[in-house]
Amino acid sequence: MSLASYIGCNIQIPLSDDDDYNDLMYIGDCFSNDYKKRDVKKHQFTTPFVYEVSSHWGIEISKYMDQRTSTKSKKKLIALCEIMDSYLEKGDYFELFSCWIGEEKDKRVGEITLRIDNLNIDLIEMPEKTLVRIEK
């Protein structure tokens, strides 16, 4: 199984070009398909546009993860926030949800709200199936 991360937002954003692919952040399908994105939109998000993000593994920050994976997830979250900061207007937000492929409809384990301009990455606990709302 694979861990996928999805974002939901109120605006359309461009997908990453294959030339832009890197090991840190990519906006476009890796593990998911239209049905999985539809499920996560219906069961998790409040926003109309859904994208899969990350690269070859989702974003999960948990004390139960190994240090290397946790550090990489923190870097991915920072990169995602930098990208989204350029698209969002003041007062807008995007949502982030990570889960194992096939679990897009499952009940959430939690919800948190973060500020894009006050992201203390070392204090964030973001296990799978947590809805994260990131406000600008």
Rank of each mutant, 00 (worst) to 15 (best):
T113V: 13
I11C: 12
M1C: 00
D66N: 02
D29E: 08
I134R: 10
S16K: 04
S70M: 05
V109N: 07
K105S: 15
I13R: 12
F97P: 00
D17C: 12
Q67F: 10
T113K: 13
I78L: 05
K74G: 11
N22D: 09
L80F: 13
R115Y: 07
A4F: 12
T46W: 06
R68V: 15
V40R: 01
E135A: 04
K37W: 05
K63F: 13
L15N: 09
H43R: 06
S5G: 01
D85V: 06
C9R: 05
D29F: 08
D117V: 12
Q44E: 05
K105G: 10
W57H: 12
D34H: 07
M65Y: 03
I61A: 04
I124F: 06
M1D: 05
L123H: 03
S55K: 07
G102W: 08
I124V: 15
Q44Y: 03
K76V: 12
E128G: 10
I134E: 10
K75E: 00
K37T: 09
T69Q: 13
F94N: 14
P127K: 09
P127N: 13
R115N: 11
P48M: 01
V50T: 15
N120D: 12
L77G: 07
S62E: 08
T113A: 04
G58I: 03
S73I: 06
P48D: 09
R115G: 01
K42L: 13
M1R: 08
N10A: 05
I61G: 09
E128F: 06
L77F: 12
I124S: 03
T113F: 05
L131S: 08
Y35A: 01
I124M: 04
M126L: 15
S55E: 13
Y87P: 12
N118R: 01
E89T: 06
D20K: 09
I134L: 03
V53Q: 11
L96I: 14
S5M: 04
F49K: 00
I124N: 10
D20N: 13
H43C: 09
C99M: 00
